[in-house]
Nucleic acid binder design. Structure first.
Length: 867
RNA sequence: GGGGACGUGGUGGAAUGGUAGACACAGCAGACUUAAAAUCUGCAGGCGAAAGCCGUCCGGGUUCGAGUCCCGGCGUCCCUACCA
């Protein structure tokens, strides 16, 4: 009996699949239902890691399963290829971003192909290819025509040394992550997409996504942050400041507490504050003080409330004689609502902190149920619960919600404002002052202003001849690229040198896969057939930005007629990370000296698992299980694992030990176990006598029946586990079945058992195929089946065989298991009752007590209540 | 501060309200071997010689029956954050 050698069989079968073109997606239609499986496409960083292996294996399990179930499956792969790491590499190593990116893609493609994924590589593309980003420019211009794209000034984090804009996460302690220079706030005119136009629809759409995790839907809902309230304007008590003749606009979700107002607050960068600062150095100094302080969590958390009375007053909307002071306050955000609030200290904690600090009045207007209006007071904790409104004239006695409605109605009647819905979501700034991205297809002409690049001049291609030896955007200093003539007037014009946020690239690639060579951005017919993606799989870290942008862009493309669906991903699955134990040198607990797993060996000491350096015997401490990272040195390289155990073992292991949505604990022992399964499974296939000797009319005996039942139960269980994304349970069943199979050795077996084994092994080969596809092919040949396992249909189970006909039911007395009875499935209650009461173990516990009740759950359990 | 998830052996985990701990890792014992590795077989929640008792973070509750449902704690992790 030959030992199974994955090194020999695996490349052979990948070549066979490739040669037969089995994963090239057939044309649309053809009678089969379609199924689109997509894993979030990778950034070509250089090498694949175990996270990729797990992610793409999960997608492949689904894709191969659906293929076998008779679906027309689309399972493509591409590259999210624009982005900063390429520019960083250019600056650090003098390589060109393009060369670096494509070299990485070549390397990673080879690695991914080694995983034996059922991917249609003919649809592959990279977002940095003009054939892709040129189409992106085309639809960007379409959105511009419909007004979804606009320009406005916005603040950015500016690194004065690198002369570049930084994302928030690149600002560390107020300094640029690379240069270490103190970051400045700068205002730049930038391009924005009106995602806020779709805020409501994006929230409503979440309700239709019943195959998305609740967690992700909730995160998106919170991110969009819809709140209903009242927007209104205070009238000035004195002369109106310039440009604010219509009053001071505020937004509130608690109009019911208007009679508890004690001040009005504005943000430090509110137009009124800026106006006052320009006129008064004291105000200017205060505003500057507010701006100091970092934006980190800790800074905000500990930041004290700061305020300054402007000396200006406004009139309370419900009482012309009531004047409220206007304060500048550091805790008010200019970007949310109107950048101004009315402060109600009794019922808002921030307002209360502020009022206590500056001795402003605190007037409760919501009385908690059961509290005495004469005695109720707010000390240092604002009351935000339910209750009845008091101290509030026309609202007195109302509950909170009716009071809100009453206040809004009154304000609207006065013509001072209206009920309004406000979102936390901001418009999407897509300009990036970088080279390695999709050029924004726009020109600036002195005479004509902003001019879109005409469609026939697309794509606007990135120039290759750029340098990274000096800081700043290479496009800006390129000698010729930006200088063009205006397509409208023929005069001199300049190109936009900003490129698009790479999230734009990943917001529509799933639609491009429907036909990656289409002349239009999207081949409508192909997209109509394939979209939405039936199963999207990726990391939960994309739960908000990527998935929200993709949902938005899909809607926008629908509105310009390029797509027919509003939701791109009908099903979403978010998989967990890959973790690994850490190891460090003994005695370095305070500042651990990490040791990589490759040099570690394990041994047992007093029944405990210990670690040491294999070469030297130096003792090591086994640390926590953490996300694989270079800094902790707890990574393992997929290529090493594949070389040692084979692809099938690696694939099997990454989906076997934890539920897919949870973090996965990589271990050497674990992958060895998966490798053992592969070779033991092969041994069972190999032990089966060739088909001819069994014969078809083998009949049946109790042994063969038992095996057949186990087989059909397995088919049912594995199918259900894949459908339900419980791969770990399905694989456990496969392991279990292999153990069962050992109880039915081929040697010396009856013809009936040999036949039952043949049925079992044929099914087993197909059931393991999504996980260990190479082994499945090898087994398929060994079993004498025709064709390839990859083309074999998923086995069907016989419901009659998948359920037991003889059952062993536990019998409980007062909830404790005391015995068991053997009954036929569906046995009559009276018979079961009699058997249960007669059981010896049960009898012991019924001595001296009276049976009060017997609960029989059909085919499940019997519980006897006695006392 | 707000929102969410989770808490089961030494470990990862399994269990439509119905026999808790499937399956695997680590461990232990045995077989094979001159020996080791590999492989195979077996044991294995705790206490107990056994019968049995106790066991799913803690405390209550619902139920014939709770890991699972409800209420109140504690703990861990994730997201979000001066969002009016």
């Amino acid at each position: 009996m030959a030992r199974y050698d994955p090194k020999e069989t695996e490349p052979k079968w990948r070549a066979a699949w490739d040669g037969a073109g089995v994963f090239t997606t057939p044309a649309e239609g053809g009678g089969k239902p379609k199924y689109y499986v997509l894993e979030m496409f990778p950034y070509p960083s250089g090498r694949i890691h175990m996270g990729h292996v797990r992610n793409y294996t999960m997608g492949d399990v689904v894709a191969r399963y659906k293929r076998a179930k008779g679906f027309n499956v689309l399972h493509p792969m591409g590259w999210d290829a624009f982005g900063m790491p390429a520019e960083n590499a250019a600056m650090e190593r003098g390589v060109h971003p393009k060369g670096w990116t494509f070299a990485n893609i070549d390397g990673m493609r080879d690695q991914l192909k080694q995983l034996g994924l059922s991917i249609d590589w003919s649809r592959e593309f990279a977002t940095c290819e003009p054939q892709y980003y040129g189409k992106q420019q085309a639809w960007f211009l379409k959105l511009m025509e419909t007004g979804l794209v606009y320009r406005k000034e916005a603040q950015v984090n500016w690194d004065p040394v690198d002369m570049t804009v930084l994302a928030n996460e690149q600002v560390i302690d107020g300094k640029g992550w690379r240069s270490g220079a103190v970051v400045e706030k700068r205002k730049l005119t930038q391009w924005f997409l009106r995602i806020t136009d779709y805020a409501d629809d994006l929230i409503e759409g979440l309700k239709t996504l019943d195959r998305w995790p609740d967690k992700v839907r909730l995160m998106q809902e919170n991110w969009i942050g819809r709140s209903k309230g009242l927007r209104f304007s205070f009238n000035w008590a004195g002369p109106a400041p310039e440009g604010l003749e219509d009053g001071l606009a505020v937004y509130t979700t608690r109009p019911d507490t208007l009679f508890g107002a004690s001040f009005v607050g504005i943000a430090p960068d509110h137009p009124l504050a800026e106006q006052l600062a320009a006129a008064d150095p004291r105000v200017a100094a205060f505003v500057a003080e507010c701006r100091k302080g970092g934006t980190s969590e800790a800074d905000i958390e500990g930041a004290p409330k700061l305020g300054m009375d402007t000396g200006i007053s406004v009139v309370h909307p419900f009482d012309p004689d009531w004047k409220l002071p206007v304060w500048i306050a550091n805790f008010i955000l200019s970007e949310y609502g109107t950048g101004a609030i009315f402060g109600c200290p009794a019922h808002d904690q921030r307002d209360l902190d502020f009022a206590r600090k500056y001795n402003l009045p605190v007037t409760p207007v919501v009385l908690p149920n059961g509290a005495d209006p004469a005695e109720f007071q707010v000390e240092n904790e604002a009351y935000v619960g339910p209750g009845k409104i008091f101290n509030s004239k026309f609202m007195d006695g109302l509950e909170v919600e009716p009071a809100k409605a009453a206040a809004i109605e009154r304000i609207e009647a006065q013509g001072q404002g209206e009920g309004a819905t406000v979102y936390r979501l901001r418009d999407w700034g897509v300009s990036r002052q970088r080279y390695w991205g999709c050029p924004i297809p726009v020109l600036y002409c002195d005479a004509c202003g902003v001019v879109p690049v005409p469609a026939d001049q697309l794509p606007v291609v990135l120039p290759d001849d750029v340098t990274f030896d000096v800081p700043g955007n290479p496009l800006l200093r390129h000698p010729t690229w930006r200088h063009v003539s205006c397509p409208t007037c023929g005069g001199p014009a300049e190109r936009e040198t900003d490129t698009l946020d790479t999230f734009m690239d990943s917001s529509w690639y799933f639609a491009r896969f429907a036909d990656p060579h289409a002349t239009e951005p999207v081949n409508k017919a192909a997209a109509d057939y394939w979209l939405p993606v039936d199963q999207y799989i990726g990391g939960v870290e994309h739960a908000i930005l990527h998935l929200l942008y993709a949902r938005f862009v899909t809607r926008a493309l629908k509105d310009v007629g390029l797509l027919s669906v509003a939701e791109p991903f009908a099903g979403l699955f978010t998989q967990g990370m890959v973790n690994h134990e850490t190891y460090f040198q003994a005695g370095t607990d305070a500042r651990p000296v990490w040791v990589e797993p490759a040099v570690v060996e394990f041994y047992a000491e007093a029944g405990q698992r210990r670690a040491r350096v294999a070469a030297t015997g130096e003792p090591l401490v086994i640390g926590d299980v953490e996300k694989m990272s270079k800094s902790k040195k707890n990574t393992v390289a997929p290529e090493d694992i594949i070389a040692a155990y084979g692809v099938d073992a690696a694939r099997l292991f990454v989906v076997s030990d934890s539920p897919p949505e949870r973090d996965f604990h990589w271990s050497t022992g674990g992958v060895e176990g998966a490798g053992r399964f592969v070779s033991r499974a092969w041994n069972e296939f190999d032990a089966q006598p060739s088909a001819g000797s069994a014969g078809m009319a083998a009949g049946s005996d109790p042994k063969s029946d038992e095996l057949r039942r186990a087989t059909h139960k397995l088919i049912k269980a594995v199918g259900e586990s894949i459908e339900g994304f419980k791969f770990n349970s399905g694989i456990a069943k496969l392991y279990e079945f292999l153990n069962i199979l050992k109880g039915f050795p081929a040697e010396g077996a009856s013809a009936a058992v040999i036949a039952a084994r043949a049925e079992a092994l044929s099914a087993f080969a197909r059931l393991i195929a999504p996980f260990t596809p190479h082994l499945a092919e090898e087994a398929w040949v060994r079993l004498g089946e025709t064709g390839m396992a990859v083309d074999a249909p998923w086995p069907e189970y016989d419901p009659g065989l998948a359920a037991d006909s003889e059952l062993v039911l536990p019998v409980q007395v007062n909830g404790k298991r005391r015995g068991e009875v053997h009954v036929a499935k569906g046995a009559a209650e009276a018979d079961v009752r009699q058997l249960a009461l007669a059981d010896a173990g049960v009898q012991v516990h019924l001595a001296g007590v009276t049976v009060r009740k017997v609960i029989i759950v059909q085919d499940r359990i019997i519980n006897i209540v006695a006392n």
